[in-house]
Design a protein around this nucleic acid. Structure first.
Length: 293
DNA sequence: AGGTGTCAAGTATTA
DNA sequence: TAATACTTGACACCT
């Protein structure tokens, strides 16, 4: 079982998500940011390795404006040594990394330009992960997208986009249930129709449940969508923030609630992304309590 | 040095 | 029809 966190380490000053405003995005500024971000990412992965934290989500900002025409840097060539160095760390410790594009990446949009931009953004994520490792266990996690007043048609557009997708892209994609529009049942159905594995997000499922099935049943179904080449199945886990509205991530992870969740898992060959706001702090505390350190 | 408004992009919801 | 939340930190600019 791997436990991991998203994008930011709160224990060291290193960061891999430095960016700039579009108006300041000169080639020089972008090169400096990329260099700084790759160095920061290396420090974070080394920190993780030293603590046996083998799962990490890489910030989409690691290459700023990567899918925007303002960024004309051939970063795969210019930073090939740094990227290869990151890849060696990942391989040496058998780490799994992932990426999660932002809210503007919507491949089921009825607007062709939105889809084109989204595919360009996905292609950037694919190229970044490909630069680190050829293994298909490093995934890009996406949501289904928007509803546009007709869920059946929205799903159909998602399926069509996946059908037309390059196999090199498709092997990196996984779909996750969200907290408002597409439930675990929706995503499972789309997983069967597209061949994309499913990430089960526990908090989103509680915020927007589907059907009478127990969580254990959804976990079993989600696991069944992962092929051996995809690596261990992945779930997202966090607690509800009691102060805020439904679906908001709590500050940290409650160990007793987590133990209950773990008991629902069909098996422990699993990658669990802990999405608490205190990032690696909760991961380290939980690993200590579960005697995983 | 510290405080605050702003930031590439889309969609759904509300006012 | 227009504003705003989403989720959130980092930057840019101001004092």
């Amino acid at each position: 079982m791997r436990l991991g966190y998203a994008c930011i380490n709160l224990s060291i000053p290193a960061r891999s998500n430095h960016r700039c405003l579009l108006k300041n995005a000169s080639s020089g500024a972008l090169r400096r940011l990329i260099s700084q971000n790759l160095a920061g990412l290396r420090e974070i992965l080394e920190y993780n390795a030293a603590r046996n934290i083998l799962l990490f989500r890489i910030s989409s900002n690691v290459i700023p404006f990567a899918s925007h025409p303002v960024n004309r840097i051939s970063w795969e060539d210019e930073f090939a040594p740094q990227l290869a160095g990151l890849g060696r760390i990942i391989a040496e410790f058998n780490m799994v990394v992932s990426m999660h594009p932002g809210q503007y990446t919507i491949i089921n949009s009825p607007h062709p330009q939105v889809v084109r931009n989204s595919l360009a953004e996905l292609d950037y994520h694919r190229r970044f992960l490909d630069a680190l490792s050829g293994s298909a266990c490093h995934k890009i996690v996406v949501h289904v997208g928007g509803l546009y007043g007709n869920k059946a048609r929205a799903k159909q557009r998602f399926i069509e986009q996946c059908r037309d997708m390059d196999p090199g892209m498709k092997r990196r994609l996984v779909i996750e249930n969200d907290d408002r529009l597409f439930t675990a049942a929706d995503v499972l159905e789309l997983s069967h129709q597209t061949g994309l594995p499913m990430v089960f997000d526990h908090l989103h499922h509680l915020a927007h449940p589907s059907g009478p099935e127990r969580v254990a049943e959804w976990l079993l179904r989600a696991r069944s969508t992962w092929e051996p080449s995809d690596g261990d199945y992945k779930v997202h886990y966090s607690d509800q923030d009691p102060q805020k509205k439904k679906g908001s991530h709590a500050h940290s992870i409650d160990i007793e609630k987590l133990r209950c969740f773990l008991a629902e898992l069909p098996d422990y060959r699993v990658n669990i992304m802990l999405e608490g706001k205190d990032k690696n702090l909760s991961v380290e505390r939980v690993m200590e309590l579960l005697a995983m350190g």
